[in-house]
């Protein structure tokens, strides 16, 4: 347990909270880069996923693409981009975007597909046009699963961003790599604890969001079921 105490002492050490390379700066970097990546990846993947789910067209392609992307080893992709674009932020950003796309894409089409086809049929028979069917029926009803996809993508980004400190000078992962280099276990464990806490807090926030976006009329019947079985993200943990 000494190891943990050392790590906590490292985290609480005021000198680690100051200036360039301090905990607040690293945490901030980790957060904003993750947020930017998520926005870029979502802007690409969510519309495509919703379209695939709505039309049913290109489903095979979407499944194949997200499957193939997922089999990619994250460290390999990061290294390759680092070699192409040089050490620094330019390399991890495209790599992280690529790796965040599969869960977002899958969440979006699975969310839309999960809706009872009879409800969509009724909406069409009433005279909703395709845009209205997507906007007023499919997206609200599929939202819990879509948010589930965003949740796993976010966890994936946070995890990969930690690893990305290997090729770029940013984020909480820096503490781990600098600790590995100097064999300072307190620092690497301290950094790991910060990363774990960050991931769990974000995951918890998403779990809450996921529950809140269940439409009220659906919650009336499905709430208990969702509670015992939260739509579990399958974040790759790279």
């Amino acid at each position: 347990m000494n190891l943990v105490l050392d790590a906590i002492a490292w985290i609480l050490d005021p000198t680690n909270w100051e200036g360039v390379g301090g905990i607040p700066q690293r945490l901030w970097e980790h957060l904003w880069i993750s947020a930017v990546i998520l926005l870029i990846a979502a802007a690409i993947a969510l519309p495509v996923g919703v379209l695939v789910g709505h039309t049913g067209r290109g489903r095979e392609a979407a499944v194949t693409v997200s499957g193939a992307l997922r089999a990619l080893p994250t460290l390999g992709v990061l290294s390759l981009f680092a070699l192409w674009l040089g050490i620094g932020l330019r390399a991890p950003i495209p790599a992280l975007v690529i790796l965040a796309i599969p869960p977002l894409l899958a969440g979006a089409y699975a969310g839309i597909e999960s809706i009872d086809r009879r409800i969509v049929d009724a909406a069409r028979a009433m005279g909703m046009n395709e845009r209205q069917i997507v906007g007023k029926v499919e997206v609200p009803l599929g939202l819990p699963i879509i948010v589930g996809g965003i949740r796993s993508a976010t966890l994936q980004i946070i995890a990969t961003a930690t690893l990305a400190a290997y090729v770029a000078d940013f984020g909480l992962g820096r503490f781990i790599f600098s600790g590995l280099k100097t064999r300072d276990y307190a620092e690497m464990l301290g950094g790991s604890i910060l990363v774990i806490v960050l991931a769990l807090v974000v995951d918890g926030a998403f779990a809450l969001t996921q529950r809140l976006v269940v439409p009220a009329g659906v919650r009336a019947t499905r709430f208990t079921e969702l509670r015992s079985r939260p739509a579990r993200p399958r974040a790759a943990v790279g």
Partner: peptide, 12 residues
């Protein structure tokens, strides 16, 4: 468990 980033788990 699944939410924990792999590198952090390896170290912890």
């Amino acid at each position: 468990l699944y939410a924990i980033p792999s590198l952090a788990l390896l170290i912890a």
